[in-house]
């Protein structure tokens, strides 16, 4: 079984000189295809930093981070941009584009590669929104949607490009218990269908049961 994400002895610190603040210490972990892994831990344990390194958003210098076969340590921006296009993101805040409708927001994922026609993109995006239960909200702007609905739009946006990996940072943090649970279950169901790997950072213990594996991070080390 191939590993989608392979992290080997990764260390990372903020600042420099006397102010150096180590955040991640010698982290080693690997994720298989289709695996759902939750990372938990207290605030400041380095969860989010870890996620941004996996996502190619932050440059780490020590250790090895291989995502979809690409080494991220000391790599150039071009490789990371290409890899990012195969990763779906779900943010704590929904981060939808305010000026676009739900459908247009989901289409943004598909517009990176212009091989599809406009009609194909719209159909795909609409299918995805129907799958997350927002078939009747296609032309609503984010301001006209509830918090749970917005998060479901961003799940649709993350999944519509058929990514190999989903990275989610506290996806339930701004939601109530009911809609938060619905959102992650939806994510799990859709991901399992398409064999997508999920790496989810949370300290919401209500959703631990969706994971195949729970990893606890404390002071930058895996416990």
């Amino acid at each position: 079984m191939s590993n989608i994400i392979e992290v080997d002895h990764l260390s990372f610190s903020f600042g420099s000189g006397a102010l150096t603040q180590p955040v991640l210490k010698d982290v080693t972990i690997s994720l298989e295809q289709g695996e759902i892994v939750l990372i938990t831990g207290p605030s400041g344990s380095g969860k989010t930093t870890f996620l941004t390194i996996i996502g190619g958003l932050r440059q780490a210098l020590h250790g090895s981070v291989k995502v979809l076969g690409h080494q991220f340590i000391n790599s150039n921006e071009q490789i990371k941009v290409k890899t990012r296009q195969q990763i779906g993101y779900i943010f704590q805040q929904h981060n939808l584009l305010k000026s676009l409708t739900a459908l247009q927001n989901v289409c943004m994922t598909l517009e990176i590669n212009t091989t599809m026609t406009e009609q194909q993109r719209c159909d795909r995006a609409a299918e995805m929104l129907i799958a997350v239960g927002l078939g009747d909200r296609l032309d609503y702007k984010p301001d006209q949607l509830s918090g749970g609905q917005r998060q479901r739009v961003s799940i649709a946006r993350a999944l519509v490009g058929q990514p190999k990996i989903i990275l989610a940072d506290e996806p339930t943090a701004s939601l109530d218990k009911q809609s938060g649970y619905e959102a992650v279950n939806l994510l799990k169901r859709l991901a399992k269908e398409s064999q997508t790997t999920i790496l989810l950072v949370t300290h919401d213990y209500r959703i631990l049961d969706i994971a195949d594996r729970v990893v606890e991070l404390e002071d930058g080390m895996i416990k």
Partner: peptide, 15 residues
């Protein structure tokens, strides 16, 4: 004003 939105798009792979 659109900084967050642009950053999101960048994370999604926009150059």
């Amino acid at each position: 004003n659109h900084r967050n939105e642009f950053a999101t798009l960048k994370a999604m792979g926009y150059e």
